[in-house]
């Protein structure tokens, strides 16, 4: 690839990782422009989650480059460091702090100091409260703010997690299967929510649900056996014979 890394938000080049000999990611290359939203699709086990693991520092690639915001080599940083730089991630399985209130979940996610002693003496500022209120509106959980997150429905937890991501004010949002386990209406609302945040943030969404991907209406990357199979508009890739083969052939 001959893309310059300067104007890209996320730049993966020739990334490979193997688990006990099994190549989960194989020479994967991918570029996300600033402000772009990208949908990543692919059959189960294609390596979508593993790709996110690599970007967020959970898994170290065996080889290849992972460059963030033009010049930061993400393979040199740990999860927390990468998160602080502005890469937010939503897990495939919704993960929120169940024993905290919805509001506290957001509070803890807000961008700000993460130092042990800073936190010991931290007080909630007006600005923080305002931002929390704003986010609660966005994710439609304003009326449940002081309930424990455990009490939320599955879909609400997904939203809360997206809200927590946004609270970090990240440059890049990695969203792993946000619509899983949602009703159709919720799915559409989620697509709406993501489109809403797209402009300010660079977003990468992994999703199986084609209706959802269509609703996003963005460029699609098809992943298969750890590398990119096709890239382009949804209509373009879904007419690609290789893609049809992969999806229908199994």
């Amino acid at each position: 690839m001959t893309v310059s890394t300067a104007d890209t938000m996320l730049y993966l080049n020739g990334v490979s990782v193997a688990f006990d000999g099994f190549k989960a990611i194989n020479e994967l290359s991918l570029v996300l422009e600033e402000g772009e939203m990208r949908a990543v699709v692919g059959p189960n086990g294609a390596g979508k989650t593993t790709m996110m693991d690599i970007i967020t520092g959970k898994t170290r690639p065996d080889k290849g480059e992972v460059i963030f915001a033009g010049n930061v080599d993400l393979t040199k940083h740990d999860e927390a460091g990468i998160a602080r730089m502005g890469v937010g991630r939503k897990f495939q399985k919704p993960t929120v702090f169940e024993t905290h209130t919805v509001e506290d979940n957001l509070l803890l996610s807000l961008k700000g100091s993460r130092g042990v002693f800073d936190l010991l003496f931290a007080r909630r500022t007006k600005a923080e409260q305002a931002r929390i209120d704003e986010l609660l509106d966005l994710i439609r959980l304003g009326d449940r703010r002081s309930e424990k997150a455990a009490a939320l429905s599955h879909g609400q937890k997904q939203w809360l997690e997206i809200g927590m991501l946004l609270a970090q004010d990240p440059k890049v949002l990695l969203v792993d299967e946000p619509a899983a386990g949602m009703t159709d209406a919720e799915t559409m609302q989620t697509a709406e929510l993501l489109r809403q945040v797209a402009g300010e943030h660079t977003v990468m969404v992994v999703e199986h649900d084609m209706d959802f991907v269509r609703a996003l209406g963005v460029k699609v990357t098809v992943l298969h056996e750890g590398s990119v199979l096709a890239e382009g508009s949804l209509d373009h890739v879904s007419s690609n014979p290789k893609v049809i083969d992969v999806y229908l052939g199994r």
Binding site: E79, A80, A83, E98, R114, A122, Q168
Partner: peptide
């Protein structure tokens, strides 16, 4: 004092979902 501070909330977060806490930018080990 510790558990009622924001630090205390982070501790509980670590207890309940350690990797989520990490991906929010907290160095859990500290």
């Amino acid at each position: 004092l510790v558990v009622t501070s924001r630090l205390g909330k982070v501790l509980v977060s670590i207890r309940d979902a350690e990797s989520r806490t990490r991906f929010l930018g907290y160095r859990v080990e500290g």
